[in-house]
């Protein structure tokens, strides 16, 4: 009796502290989610809004542009293994505390903090056909590698992937390094005494110790690919050339705010919301394992 009263009183105070946050979450997440589902099941907006069942979904799932947008998200997943492996190697090198490792650590994180808008404009310049990347390639006798990096529809998406790798590598490296530094040094010393090579230590000591963090980083990258590549696409290619770099987020933006087709855009938004919720659940499972 006393206990339940205590919990009741606690719940009351807790509620007061939670209230402002809950109101904002409701306004920014809950209501929009309900509305976006409503829009996806309708034709027209506002006063002209009429229930249309699943028609929009039938249209969108057969839509070529939507299919290629989704496929482009899937293709960009190629950055997940590349970044994971790259970050592992860089973190292991830094963990050896080679000369200057603190400076390297500072520098490698710089791309992570720089604005995508600013860096996208810069990379847009560097990667032009007459840009400096091609000029550099010619100057080191690799002229046959020159490409119109962002203007050729066969490679533009991979170029965008490259820029994402440039930006994200430092985060993974620092994440893995922070975890490695909390591992018992004895484990590495023992492996050294047993004559394990650098690669063997990476494979047999570091990776098993890092396994949860690797999972965490990988799921974060999958989330990035499906939910946070809009800025790169907007600045680097604007979805082009020939829609070859369109992704889900950009599709939603274009149909919603350029073509004013709110219902179609909302339908795609709901589909990506579903992807987001699945990723949310997977991420939760991983975080829970780290906490245990």
């Amino acid at each position: 009796m006393v206990r339940s009263k205590l919990i009741g009183k606690q719940a009351g105070t807790a509620f007061l502290f939670l209230l402002p946050g809950l109101l904002l979450i409701g306004f920014v997440y809950l209501i929009p989610i309900i509305n976006v589902i409503g829009l996806s099941l309708s034709k027209g907006v506002g006063e002209n809004q009429t229930f249309a069942g699943l028609t929009n979904y039938q249209v969108i799932l057969k839509d070529r542009l939507f299919q290629s947008a989704f496929l482009n998200n899937v293709k960009l997943l190629v950055i997940v293994p590349i970044l994971t492996l790259g970050a592992l190697i860089f973190a292991s090198i830094l963990y050896d505390r080679i000369r200057g490792w603190r400076i390297y650590q500072t520098v490698i994180f710089i791309p992570v903090v720089l604005a995508i808008a600013a860096m996208g404009i810069t990379f847009g310049q560097l990667l032009q056909f007459k840009g400096l990347v091609n000029e550099f390639l010619r100057s080191i006798q690799l002229g046959f590698l020159t490409r119109d990096w962002l203007g050729d529809q066969n490679i533009a998406l991979w170029t965008v992937g490259g820029v994402i790798i440039w930006k994200e590598l430092g985060f993974g490296t620092i994440l893995f390094l922070a975890r490695l530094m909390s591992v018992e040094q004895d484990l590495f010393d023992a492996a050294k005494v047993d004559g394990a090579s650098w690669w063997q230590r990476l494979w047999n000591v570091s990776i098993p110790q890092l396994v949860h963090v690797i999972e965490f980083y990988a799921i974060l990258l999958v989330v990035t690919v499906f939910s946070f590549v809009f800025d790169y696409i907007l600045i680097l290619t604007n979805g082009g050339p020939n829609n070859s770099t369109i992704v889900g987020e950009f599709f939603i933006y274009k149909f919603g705010f350029i073509y004013n087709r709110f219902n179609i855009a909302s339908t795609v938004a709901v589909l990506y919301l579903v992807v987001g919720i699945i990723l949310m659940i997977v991420r939760y499972q991983i975080v829970k394992r780290i906490e245990e």
Binding site: V223, F228, G248, G256
Partner: peptide, 13 residues
């Protein structure tokens, strides 16, 4: 985890 893009149409309205 959710992309702000999926919320932005109803929020704008």
């Amino acid at each position: 985890v959710l992309s702000p893009v999926v919320l932005v149409i109803p929020l704008f309205r």
